[in-house]
Amino acid sequence: MCTTVLREICKTFPKYTSKQFRVFVSLRSLGYASREYAHEERDPAPFFFDSNVQSLLRTLTRVDLNKVFRKRKTGDLKLEQPTYKFLTDEQLQDALKEAHEKSSQLLQIPPVIKVRKPIDTVISNDPALQGLETSKFVFTDISYGIKYSQRIIVVRETDGTLRHADWDVRERMNQLYFPEHGRKLKIPRMFENTNLESLLNRKEYIFLLDRACIQFEPDDANYQRVTSITYQHINDNNDFEILRSTRHFGALAFFLTWFKNIDNLVLDLLETLHIEEVNVLLQLYEKLHDQSFGAEKSDEVEALIIYINKAASKKGPLELAVQAYKDLKKQRLQLEKGIQAAHGLT
């Protein structure tokens, strides 16, 4: 059906080639648009790096050590035989403490910052050099001990202009002369929209986000495109459980809260009876949007009800979920009372 329609369009507009159409189709089939932290809008970095916000995001991540130290698709790493040890209670506590410290390292949330501005600084313009070369020159400073971001990379154009290199050239040169393990010189094809969609449908979120973290810098527009589309897909399909106890959950929660889209997450938390996490999420919302629901003091649904009235977009389902939560709580209380009565304790 879709192809026949396209064929019709092709006939009526002969200026489009089939290749252009492939791009057209692939863009259309992915139902999500990129939502970046654009550089002309509010800056998320000061909020994200605030220690209170970091601890809220950690709480929402809900650390489960079994999942943090799970077997992972590492590709080139050989698996090791596990070792079993007899430990005293003290040694066991020490080992657990060590594991917790290591987990907090593994769960460091990838930074959330604005998309970087394009580079367009021209250093000099020398029209007398026209005709010298038919190709550009790219000069890279390979002095030791310079940061990636501060390395001088300049381009001499064929018309004699000397300018600072664009971001994509910079990344290419940095990767060429100082390769980073796991990063490819060209962007892997899995990040193209068609392949991205197939990965999303197979729910390979962790693979996608891990690889995006290695391949791109966090202020790259491509990074924010891939991650934002993934987060939106997760939000729409309620797949929050897949990302829990990974380093990406904090970034997901921050993204949803920043763009005022937390209703699905709240519903998910309510259904699994994590009311304290709902309050943490509402605290995060208060911090990012300068609103007040009294989430810090409430330990039940009071703050949530204020949120539903003030800011929620899915009011109906949320109210129903709150009612269901209250009923369940009441039933449990009754059950407990019944058990106590049966034991003759009251």
Partner: peptide
């Protein structure tokens, strides 16, 4: 202190690296 590739790559660039400090 550097390298120079005189054959243009697929982006039509000739790559030069220079260790300016040295």
């Amino acid at each position: 202190v550097g390298s120079y590739d005189p054959i243009p790559n697929e982006y039509n660039e000739k790559l030069v690296s220079l260790n300016f400090e040295r």
